[in-house]
Structures are given as structure tokens and as C-alpha cells.
Write a protein that binds this DNA or RNA. Structure first.
Lengths: 190, 190
DNA sequence: CATTTTTATTAAACCAGTTTAACGACTTAA
DNA sequence: TTAAGTCGTTAAACTGGTTTAATAAAAATG
């Protein structure tokens, strides 16, 4: 759990007692490829830290898969909408490969944040960080063509293209598998 | 500043002393229509609360306006990317009508959050709230057609359509003024 | 390793948007 | 009160994607 500890400390200093306090609540979860943390209808009462692997955050709409995000090494994640608002999940959180995450229950998160000002601050700053990353995503969705989005992904997260099947990448970019295939063809020609 | 006080208290209880402490830092800003809080290149060192009016959060890209969000009554906002990362702004924050906001400097936000666990918690929860709203925006951008997006906006923020010129609405929805005009025509026919 | 299943490519027809340009209505300023 | 600018609509030609379907290639399975 050394990675998780360093991740927390990357946001703000936390004294050893407070760190130990929150760590008592974390439990390790191993997922095989295809294993799910959350599926629609589930209660979402955990916040996760992705240590090893990749988790696909997606929903099914009229049978069609809509990928919202791929969470990879060293990020916090959950189905935040459902988690925050205590609503049943509408998304899946599913491992695209063998994956290790650490989970902490919401009730214990709240306990830890109430008990420690430093942990509360960690909570605020990590949320701020999540916000900024999400916002950047909106910027891209709004302003770029599909080709530019694909090239950007290729550049920013090259390993993702290797790890994840192309039809999921297509969905993540907001187009069809056929559409992505055409873009790729266009790119090699030029 | 009663609205601002209630907004803060809607997230978490804050004792009077701590509330007074943070309130000493807020200052009122009046903007005429077209007035700007931020423009590209500016240092973004304030967090704002919109009391009355409407602020357009947009950028210019090859001379073309790209609207990311309209902030209206009773929300916190800033150019968060620039604010958090201490980078120069790339966006405008511009009043689309006469507007009143309250501003607090980043340095004083940090002071208040360090001084008070309750205020720190308010900071975390308001950030969480902002995240959820932003995330909802991504969902819409990803999954819906332009027509559905327009209908949703009409339904969710009907006043916005009245207050803001149509070419800005078009940009917010991610299409051209011509495109939006065609959609509107299609809708009245059916 | 042979079979089945899953994934990626290609082609053809189609369509919801874009771009450009012209026009009319409304607003603003001199 | 005319002139200039802004805003929304329409039309025509275009384009970058979609859909559907067939096929090929690769991966999983017994």
C-alpha cells in the first residue's frame, strides 16, 4: 500500500497517526479481467484507489456501450455521482485486465475526514484534482475533432491503446468502431 | 451577502467566528454587461460567487467563440484550471448582463481553510459538488444528439435561452448558429 | 489444434451537421 | 432618422461521420 500512501502525501502532509487511522479502513481487492466493482443498481459506498491494472467506467445505452473513462495506475475513482448522491449506480466499473484496487467505505471516509483536518484537506485537494482532470476532458470533447482527439490520446496515454480493445477506445472518443478504423486508415496514408 | 452565507451553510455547518473570518476577505464586484473578470493571460487569483446576473465562461479559438459554461445565480466559479495550477488564464469570464459577484483571493481561501476545519470541509464539499455538475456535463456531451441537448437545456435552464443570445447557446451546445437554427425549425414543424 | 467467438477493416448508401453567402429584422449610435 | 452593426433564418453544396453488411484476422476455448 506504499503507492497509496505516497499518493495521499503528494497532496498534503499527513501525520503518521492520521495516516494509520485511515489505513485501517482500506482493504485490498483483486479483480480478474472482466471482474466488476460496480454494476447498475448497486449501492456505491466505496471510494477506490487503482494500484495495478485498468478499470473501464462505462454504461450500456440501448445495448450500446458508452465508455466514459479508463482508470489506470495511481488514481482515485468511483462512480462519483452515485457515491455522492447516494443513488443506485447507472455505470459499470469493470476491470479490462487483472487489477488490484484498494477500497474504503464512504462511512469511514467521512469518519476519517471528520477526525483529521489534514485528511479533510487531502480530500479537498484530491477532489480539486479530479475536477481539473474532468474539466480538461470537457475542453477536449468540446473543441476538437475526432481525429485530433485520437491523436491526443495516442500521445497522452499511448499504453492505453495497447491495453484496451479498439472498439472501447472508439466509444471513449465518442465514435463508432467503423469511424475510428477510417480515421486510422486516413492517418497512415498521410 | 446573505445568499453567500446560506450557500456556504448549505454544504456544512460553520460556526459564527469562522464564518466571520472568511467573510472579511470577500469583496463585492459589480460588472456591467460585457465587463470581464478574467481574460487570457491574466493571473487567476480569485474564487467567485455569483450573486446576481450571468457570466459567460468562454475562449476564442481561431477567432471563434467557444462557450464552456454560463454561470448564473448562486454558484461558485472561477477559471479553475488556471486558479489551481497557477497558470495564466486561457478563458474569458465575461458578464452577459449586469452582474454582481463576490470575490475572495486564493491566498485568503487557503488561510481560511488552514485556520478552520469546518471551512476546509466546506471547500471539499463544494468542490465535490462542482465535480458532480461537471461530470453530468460530460455525460450529456458524450451521449446525446444536438437536438436532445438543446431540448434538455430548454427544460433545465429555460431562463438561459431568454437571457443569452442564440449564437452563444449554439456554441455552448457545440454547434454553429446555422445548425441551431435548423434544429429549432425542425422542432416547431413537429 | 480445430472450432468458435471476438475484434478490426472495408465498402456503399445515407444523413446530420458544416460552410458560405444572402437577406431581413432589430438595435445602436451619430 | 438614417446609417451601421448585430442577430437569426434560409438555401445550396459539401463533408465527416453513421449504419448495415460482408469479410478477414486474431484470440479464446474445449
Amino acid at each position: 500500500m506504499e503507492n497509496l500512501r505516497n499518493k495521499i502525501l503528494s497532496y498534503t502532509p499527513v501525520n503518521v497517526a492520521d495516516m494509520d487511522y485511515i489505513f485501517q479502513f482500506y482493504r485490498k481487492i483483486r479483480l480478474r479481467k472482466g471482474g466488476k466493482l460496480i454494476k447498475p443498481g448497486d449501492r456505491v459506498d466505496c471510494f477506490y484507489y487503482l494500484d495495478v491494472g485498468c478499470v473501464n467506467y462505462y454504461k450500456l445505452e440501448q445495448g450500446e456501450i458508452k465508455v466514459l473513462e479508463f482508470y489506470t495506475e495511481d488514481v482515485f475513482f468511483t462512480d462519483l455521482n452515485a457515491y455522492v448522491l447516494d443513488k443506485p449506480a447507472t455505470y459499470f466499473l469493470e476491470a479490462t485486465e487483472d487489477t488490484i484496487v484498494y477500497a474504503i467505505e464512504k462511512i469511514n471516509v467521512e469518519k476519517a475526514f471528520r477526525m483529521s483536518h489534514q485528511l479533510e484537506r487531502f480530500g479537498r485537494l484530491s477532489m480539486q484534482d479530479a475536477f481539473v482532470r474532468t474539466f480538461t476532458r470537457i475542453e477536449r470533447l468540446n473543441n476538437r475533432t475526432y481525429e485530433e482527439r485520437y491523436l491526443r490520446l495516442l500521445n497522452k496515454r499511448p499504453s492505453l491503446i495497447q491495453r484496451v480493445p479498439q472498439y472501447l477506445i472508439a466509444s471513449y472518443l465518442g465514435l463508432t468502431p467503423v469511424g475510428l478504423s477510417k480515421i486510422r486508415k486516413r492517418l497512415v496514408k498521410n
